[in-house]
C-alpha cells in the first residue's frame, strides 16, 4: 500500500479558487462526454460569495468509505490510494456517502452507483488541474500542502514586515 506521505490528491487553494466551476464542467466532459456538474467528481462550494472552494476525494488512509461499504464494493488502490468502485457490487445504498467527511463520493444520476475522483489515471493527469484557469488546483501530497501553507504564511509575514519597516 502506498504510504500516506506519498499519496497524491487534488486540492484547491482557497486563496485562488474563484468558484467558477470550470473543473466541474471539464470533469464531466472528460469522464462522460457531456457538460453536467452533477456528473463531476469535483464539486465547488460557494458560501456568501466570499468563500469559494472546490472539493474532491482526499484519498484518506484507511478510507472510511471503504470501511463503511457493506458489500465490499469499494477498495483502495495499493498503488496510489485511489478509491475503486466495483459497479457490479455497488447497489447505491449510500453508506460510503455518509461516511465521507468531504462529500467527495457521490451517487451517479444515471448509473445509480457511487462514483469518485480517480485522478484521471488513464490520461496521466487530473484534467481539472490542467484546465483550472486560476491555477488554484494542484495535485499534492499532505507534505506539499504543508510546505505551501508554510511558505505562504512566511511570505505574508514578510510582506507585512516590508510594509511597516521603511526601506532605506
Amino acid at each position: 500500500m502506498v504510504k500516506i506521505h506519498e499519496r497524491k490528491f487534488v486540492a484547491a487553494d482557497p486563496e485562488k479558487c474563484v468558484g467558477c466551476q470550470v473543473c466541474e464542467y471539464i470533469c464531466s466532459m472528460t469522464k462522460e462526454g457531456v457538460f453536467n456538474p452533477l456528473k463531476s467528481r469535483i464539486r465547488v462550494v460557494r458560501i456568501n460569495q466570499l468563500i469559494n472552494l472546490a472539493v474532491t476525494c482526499r484519498l484518506c488512509e484507511d478510507a472510511p468509505c471503504v470501511a463503511a461499504c457493506p458489500r465490499k464494493a469499494l477498495t483502495q488502490s495499493e498503488e496510489n490510494g485511489v478509491i475503486l468502485v466495483d459497479e457490479d457490487k455497488c447497489d447505491g445504498c449510500g453508506w460510503c456517502i455518509e461516511a465521507c467527511d468531504y462529500g467527495a463520493i457521490m451517487l451517479h444520476p444515471d448509473t445509480k452507483k457511487v462514483f469518485v475522483c480517480d485522478l484521471c489515471q488513464e490520461l496521466g493527469e487530473p484534467q481539472c488541474v490542467k484546465w483550472c484557469p486560476e491555477e488554484a488546483l494542484d495535485l499534492v501530497t499532505a507534505d506539499t500542502l504543508a510546505q505551501k501553507a508554510r511558505i505562504t504564511a512566511v511570505k505574508k509575514l514578510f510582506q507585512e514586515a516590508l510594509k511597516t519597516t521603511p526601506v532605506t
Binding site: 474563484v18 467558477c20 466551476q21 470550470v22 464542467y25 460569495q49 466570499l50 469559494n52 484557469p133 486560476e134
Partner: peptide
Amino acid sequence: AKIIGCSSCAMRCEHM
C-alpha cells in the same frame, strides 16, 4: 475582499 467568477468563466471579474 475577493474577486470571484461566474460559472464556467476563465476571467473572473466580480469584485466583491
